[in-house]
Amino acid sequence: MFTLAFEIVPIASLITLNMLAVAMLIAMVRLLRGPSLADRVVALDLIAALAVGVITVYSIYTNQTMLLRAGIVVALVVFVGTVAFAMYLEKRAKP
């Protein structure tokens, strides 16, 4: 009665992967176009967060939990990068 004719989780993860790809492309436009340097840093931060999301959804899609460790590393490294960018921006503004 409750068995499904097809698996719904892979289809939903494919749809979500497409959504994440569109969001990443839009953020990439902002990264290339951004009027100031701070805009580009914000766009880069968002792209990295979306990359963690892509890793997560892909590990659901392929049933491979090993990929999640890469997500941990990306989430950590990007924070350090953003803080460094902010520090240099501030340093450039007030010498």
Partner: peptide, 20 residues
């Protein structure tokens, strides 16, 4: 799982549109 996946995808899409 399907609900959470689709909701997360929609929120990420909103983030991308918002930053643009």
């Amino acid at each position: 799982v399907v609900f959470l996946l689709l909701a997360g995808g929609i929120f990420s899409l909103i983030a991308g549109v918002g930053i643009f």
